[in-house]
Amino acid sequence: MDLSKQALLVVDVQSSFHVPDAIVAGITELTRKVPTIATVERHNEAVTPFLGQLGWTPSANDKCLVPADKVFIKHGYLPPKAAIDYLKDLTVDRVLVCGIQADTCCLAAGFMLFDAGLRPTLLKWLSVGSSLDRSATLGAKLWKHHFGCVLSEPSELQI
């Protein structure tokens, strides 16, 4: 598929989460080729009870570790509606998704993209899973089951 008809959603690639350097570099390279937006998870206990319910919080002031045309701040697992609306306004054929927690935050983004008709596609080699499976294999299996579109290596992008 022509990259000009696609956009990239980078989920929570930020310093609060351990992101391997190779993934940051790979995402950065792709951002030069396709319109890119990113989400950054920030802590606000009044909005999402990370500390009260999970005993952990992301930073209250993290920044995105990769270049993006637009960065959206989120609180919780879902991307903000404004991010989905922004992608819809780009009139792309599909949205490539990568980032942190392929089996939670990326998956949550996938559901919102799917429901918006934006054909989500996970880039497994540029994603990290949660502490249950850092390899992102669980997330890729869930993604394949729910959305059908997972790319496992860069050559599948057909750049």
Rank of each mutant, 00 (worst) to 15 (best):
Y77C: 12
V92N: 12
F111E: 02
L78W: 10
E45S: 04
V19C: 13
L118M: 09
Y77K: 11
P120F: 10
L151Y: 00
L123N: 05
P67F: 01
R32N: 12
T104E: 14
Q6V: 13
T28L: 08
D62A: 13
V47A: 09
Q158L: 08
H75V: 07
L118C: 08
Q158Y: 12
A25Y: 06
V40L: 10
S135L: 12
F17S: 04
R32I: 00
T28E: 13
A82P: 03
H145V: 13
G148V: 04
L3G: 06
P79M: 14
F17M: 13
A108H: 09
F17N: 10
L87C: 08
L54W: 15
T91V: 12
S127H: 00
E156Q: 15
L113M: 05
L126R: 11
K70P: 00
F147T: 05
I84L: 10
H146W: 12
A38V: 10
I73T: 14
P35M: 03
A38Q: 04
K141S: 13
S4P: 01
D69N: 13
T137M: 12
F72L: 01
D89L: 14
W125G: 01
M1A: 14
A108N: 07
Q6S: 15
Q53A: 15
N44M: 02
L51T: 04
M1E: 14
T39W: 03
D93I: 00
L8D: 06
V66P: 11
T36Y: 01
P20I: 01
H145C: 14
S131K: 05
V40A: 07
V95P: 02
L138A: 12
C149S: 13
K70L: 09
S135V: 08
P49K: 09
W143A: 11
V10G: 09
A108G: 06
P80H: 03
E45H: 02
F114P: 04
S15V: 11
E29W: 01
